[in-house]
Structure formats: C-alpha cells, structure tokens
C-alpha cells in the first residue's frame, strides 16, 4: 500500500472532469423537478446528446457546434416527453422510462456509422502561469471550457431559482400547480420550458462524454450515468449548490476508490465499488433525519399531472 502515490490535486482535478456529465444532467433534472415534473428519461436524453454531439462535432470539426446541436436534440426529445405528460397527461414515471428506451435505441441506430472514430475534442483553456500554481493550478486552471460552463450554470440556476421572478414562478408551479394556475400562470407552458431546459443540459452532459471525457461514440456509452444524475437530484434535496456537492461527491467517490485500488489498498475491492452508492444512502439519511426536515421536502406537485379545466 502506498497512499503517498495519490496526489490530492490530481485527484480533485480528475473528479471534476469525471463528475461534469452527471453534474450537467442533474442540474437540468433539478430544474425540471422544481417545476413539478419527474422525468426519469435522463439516460435517454444524455445518450441522444452524446450521439448528436459526436456526429456534429465529427462532421464540422467544431466541438462547440457539437455541444449546441446536442443541447437542441436532447431538448427536442425532452419535448416529446413534455407533449405526452403535459398535454396528453400520460404517467410521468412510465413515459420517462419509455424515453430512455427510445433514446438508447435511436442513438444506437444514428451512431452506427461513427463507431470507432475519433472526434475533435476541446482543449484546456490556457491560463498561462496560473496553471503551474501548486494545487490550485491543476484544480482551478487546468480544465476545458465546459467544466467552467457547468460551474457557471450551477451559479446561474441557483440565482434564478432563488432570487428572480422566473424562479418564483417555477417554484410556484412545482409546489402547487392549481394555485399557480389560479394566479394566471401558464402551468403547462412553464413546465414545457423547464422540461426543454432539463433536456438541453442532459444533452450537454452526454456530449461532454462523447466529445471530451472519452472522446468517442460507442453504443450504450452512458452506461447508467443518467440514473446517477437522477439520484443526485434527490440527494441534493432540489438545491443547485447541493447538486454540485452531490455530483462531485459521487464522482469523487468513484475516482477515489479507483485511486485507492491503484495505490494497493487491499480491503475488499468489491466493497469499494459499492461504496459510492452506500455513502449516498448514508448521507441522505443523515440530512433527512437532521434538523429542518421540511426544507428538504420534494416539490409538492412532483410527478402529478396538471389538468387545466378541472
């Protein structure tokens, strides 16, 4: 065992990159759930983003365009979910699961010609001498633009939800759609907008996987990241800041257990691989059993269908 082989700065830098896809997807899903909609199709939207981002990035050789296209494609898929659940009032849980089936199937068909190819990838932003700072260099000044974009988005989403009128309306719709409707807000339209936003962030997360994290396209490559994003939203009790903590904690635990293995720690590898899930449960129990339980409650209208002319 040689724990000194683990460099904390590199560990933190690695976990930031590793957590970015789930951070983006979880942040988007958090907004959707804040509007009172439960979309379990994050995995499907992520993988559509991954394949679209790759196809566009590969053909235009401009990764940024790939990200834009991924956001659009996944938002479009999310709107299919929105149409079904908001207009046709279908069950959200089942529709979300169906969305995942559609996303996985469609992405595999679209991506067939691109298997085994390499896409142009985003390079790190050049911060000059700042990147050479001890610890802070690799952690703060050694990343690609999307890592910073994801952090910026956390800030923006936090601010908008907490301090703006738009955020207030969004929360009102999520907490009590009947009251929001009575106040004259267009519940369905607001929810559709939130669903599209959530889809676009999931798409960005998927594109980050296919264009930066791995850069490649392989069928089924998200391998469950969307489900972890869903868990992080609940873990974060629907707060933007905690989504960041949750995503980094989760990504961090995975990275840490692999680092511990590589450093030769021999205590049951299999326990280490299930540790992230167990610790998530533990933390969840701790925060829900602590003080102020009410502040951790889910949006009151979460998952319930809204029907206008009741």
């Amino acid at each position: 065992m040689d724990l000194s082989a683990i460099d904390p700065a590199l560990l933190v830098a690695a976990l930031m990159v590793s957590a970015t896809p789930i951070l983006l997807a979880a942040l988007g899903e958090m907004v959707v759930e804040r509007a009172g909609v439960l979309n379990l199709g994050v995995e499907g939207m992520m993988i559509i983003g991954a394949v679209t981002g790759f196809i566009v990035g590969f053909n235009t050789e401009v990764p940024a365009l790939g990200f834009v296209a991924a956001a659009f494609a996944s938002a479009l898929l999310a709107l299919a979910f929105g149409l079904l659940t908001q207009v046709l009032l279908s069950n959200q849980v089942a529709t979300g699961l169906g969305l995942t089936l559609v996303g996985l199937g469609l992405s595999a068909l679209l991506g067939k010609p691109y298997e085994g190819m390499k896409a142009p990838t985003l390079s790190q932003i050049d911060f000059g001498p700042l990147s050479d700072l001890p610890f802070l260099g690799p952690v703060l000044f050694g990343h690609d633009p999307v890592v910073y974009l994801s952090l910026l988005l956390v800030l923006v989403v936090w601010y908008v939800i907490k301090h703006t009128r738009v955020g207030l309306i969004l929360r009102a719709v999520g907490e009590n759609h009947d009251a929001a409707h009575a106040l004259g807000y267009k519940v369905v339209r607001i929810r559709l907008a939130a669903i599209a936003f959530g889809g676009s962030l999931a798409g960005l997360g998927g594109a980050y996987l296919s264009l930066v994290r791995l850069p490649q396209w392989t069928e089924g490559m998200t391998a469950g990241a969307g489900w972890i994003a869903l868990a992080i939203v609940v873990f974060a009790s629907w707060r933007a800041g905690r989504v960041l903590i949750g995503a980094y904690l989760f990504g961090g635990l995975t990275v840490l257990q692999l680092n511990l293995q590589a450093a030769g720690v021999t205590i049951g590898v299999q326990y280490l691989s299930m540790a992230p899930y167990l610790i998530t449960i533990l933390v969840l129990v701790l925060i829900t059993s602590g003080k102020g339980r009410g502040s951790h409650a889910a949006p009151a209208s979460l998952g319930r269908a809204f029907q206008q002319s009741r």
């Binding site: 079904l84 046709l88 279908s90 529709t95 699961l97 995942t100 559609v102 199937g105």
Partner: peptide
C-alpha cells in the same frame, strides 16, 4: 437497437 426503439414507440403510443 431498432427493436428497442420499437418498444419505446409502442410504450409512447399506449401512454
């Protein structure tokens, strides 16, 4: 993958 997509469509239409 086409079968998976097909099942997804069936589910969507039923819902």
């Amino acid at each position: 993958a086409a079968i998976q997509l097909f099942q997804g469509m069936l589910l969507f239409f039923l819902l």
